[in-house]
């Protein structure tokens, strides 16, 4: 079992929920990422998604697109992200999930990635633009090296696809709260409740919901229904607005803490 599974087991024992924090690795520069991740963890993030920047991020909204552009400009590659992961791992046992588009992975090589990610102390991988129908080789390579494979399910996913997602996912399943791309929203879609029910019917894995989460109220609402909530664009936007501000780490930490309080809130 990876750190991801151990974390979910521990939280379950304590009756707690996980806050998952996404950031684009290398934004605004590779050497800044470890300190930003430490701030997220101090604030209470239970798992970190390290986004690998890609030139053509079709699943992302403008905030994460711009973060990717900044990271690429600063010279970040998949290889850089692995080394950032290793640096974080030297000082922390927080689970790390690689969040990436498929093309950089193909170019790097599946087996090579599985081996190097595992050596860097990364716990799992999520491919945003790979279809689960073609996931067998990828999942096998990752599992051989002890990495979890997390897949996405959306409100539009058919029952047949949900079954495949359940079949190939380990660690947890990532539910997309609504159709569309990443980005903050005022209110969360009603589409997620039926998706949660449908996914529960085919898997015992923990469920995380992401896309559109930016407020403690979102965390509270979702925390009553699933094991984990993912926040991404709201954090990346905070980074973007404070690129040269020495209080960035403190702001990130307190924002994560505020979000996490959502889990304790009574509706």
């Amino acid at each position: 079992m990876t750190r991801i599974g151990l974390m979910f087991d521990g939280l379950k024992r304590d009756g707690r929920k996980a806050l998952i924090a996404y950031l684009t690795a290398g934004d605004p520069a590779p050497d800044r990422t470890p300190a930003l991740v430490e701030a997220l963890v101090r604030g209470g993030a239970d798992l970190i998604e390290l986004g690998v920047p890609f030139s053509d991020p079709i699943a992302d909204g403008p905030v994460i697109q711009r973060a990717g552009e900044r990271a690429l400009k600063a010279g970040t590659s998949l290889k850089t992200v692995l080394s950032i992961g290793a640096q974080i791992r030297e000082r922390s046992e927080t689970p790390l999930l690689l969040f990436t588009y498929l093309n950089p992975v193909i170019r790097y090589g599946l087996d090579r990635l599985a081996r190097d990610a595992s050596a860097a102390g990364i716990d799992g991988c999520l491919l945003t633009d790979a279809s689960v129908e073609e996931a067998a080789d990828y999942a096998a390579a990752m599992h051989r090296h002890g990495l979890d494979t997390v897949f996405l399910a959306a409100p539009t996913s058919t029952p047949r696809r949900l079954k495949l997602v359940a079949q190939y996912s380990t660690g947890f399943v990532y539910l997309v709260s609504r159709t569309g791309v990443t980005g903050e929203r005022d209110s969360l879609s009603d589409a997620v409740a039926p998706l949660i029910r449908a996914m529960r019917a085919v898997t015992d894995l923990p469920l995380a919901v992401g896309f559109g989460v930016s407020k403690p109220e979102h965390v509270a609402e979702l925390g009553r229904q699933v094991e984990a909530v993912v926040v991404g664009s709201a954090l990346v936007r905070l980074i973007e607005r404070n690129l040269d501000n020495s209080s960035l780490e403190i702001q990130l930490e307190s924002f994560v803490r505020e979000l996490k309080r959502g889990f304790g809130a009574r509706a």
Binding site: F54, S55, D56, L72, S77, L78, K79, N103, P104, V105, I106, R107, Y108
Partner: peptide, 10 residues
Amino acid sequence: YVLQDDDGQI
């Protein structure tokens, strides 16, 4: 076939 760099960026 796609034009890309060594890191898989388009």
